[in-house]
Amino acid sequence: MLHIVNGDVVGDKLKQGVVQGDVLVWREVYPAGPIFTNPAGVEERAMRARVLQETMEIPASDYIKSCEEQEQRLREYTKYDEVVLWFEHDLFDQSMLAYLLHWFKGQKLGRTKLSLLCIGDYPGIERFYGLGQLTPAQLQTLSGTWRAIGLHELELGSELWQAYASPDPLQLSTLLSNKKAELAASSLPYAYDAFTAHLKRLPSERNGLGIVEQTTIQAVRNGVSTPLELFRLVTDSLHVLGMGDLEYWKVIRALMQGEHPLLVIEGGESGIDVRRIPDFLNRPVTLTVLGNEVLSGSKDRIAVQGIDEWFGGLHLHGHEVSWRFDDLAGGLVQH
């Protein structure tokens, strides 16, 4: 039996006698960087590696090596009678799950059974963020509760991945709208909320701030004063995204960049990687005049600061963008 899990914390716990068989930790951050229908292509992988190195300081060579190693292990699935996918409700996991379902849809499973364990809560835990919160004993109670994955789930997962990887976000928005009930009734009940939250990451029609930037700047205006406090508050408020620290510091750096920063961290110059500021986690964070104007809607973040960001397969770059999200109407707007 092969267990594919979403992170080393969960993987290490499963190896403590929680499950029988081998454990493969799928190390990816699909909410960040460029996404392609086939991310394993040579050119696609090289481009993704370059962007992740530039924006999150993940060494390109290490990233490529890790991908090649985990994909080699994935291709060995035929050695196992059963492959179990362990995932949770947030975008970090749901994008990973969608990719793996897309990949398995293109394989001949033969005698190998494919199963899924995907949860969004756990008894006794008031704020459930993920499987990594659970003790080995708690994970043990989940062992064996997974459900078999059929062609229907493989097709849904593949559709989600292809729409997520498309440079046209309307594909994903339309898919979510048309298949909301179908997703809810399937083994993928968390996909709708996770990928809807992804679309809300696009720049707002009102002020150019995506949901992460909006939540961050509003928190600073409300009195949150350090990067550490911001990280905790924003990732808690937007737990449906499942953001890690590397993803979030990328957002902070973008808000500080250029000649028109929206945020300032004491001791940090515009455009500097925040992690290079000594003790940056506890440094004072302040909102600039421009930051206040953008938050109020009198200035537009994209117009004054620009953007260079990937949202799945969509790349928004420059001071004018082709797609935005309308906070009030709750949908995409094309320009």
Rank of each mutant, 00 (worst) to 15 (best):
E205K: 05
R206A: 01
Q214R: 11
T215S: 15
V220N: 11
N222S: 15
N222R: 14
G223E: 10
G223H: 13
T226S: 15
P227F: 04
E229Y: 04
L230M: 05
F231L: 15
H239A: 11
G242M: 04
M243W: 09
W249S: 10
W249L: 08
K250Y: 13
K250P: 03
R253P: 04
R253F: 08
R253Q: 15
R253V: 12
Q257V: 08
G258E: 11
E259I: 13
E259H: 14
L263E: 08
E269D: 03
V274R: 04
R275L: 08
R276I: 02
R276Y: 09
I277Q: 11
D279M: 05
D279Q: 06
F280R: 06
N282I: 13
R283E: 13
R283L: 11
P284G: 08
P284M: 09
V285E: 04
L287N: 09
V289R: 13
N292S: 11
E293D: 10
L295G: 12
L295R: 13
S296G: 06
G297F: 09
G297S: 09
D300N: 14
D300M: 05
V304R: 12
V304P: 04
I307S: 02
I307W: 06
E309V: 03
F311S: 02
F311C: 01
E320D: 08
V321N: 01
W323T: 01
W323G: 01
R324Y: 01
D327M: 00
L328I: 10
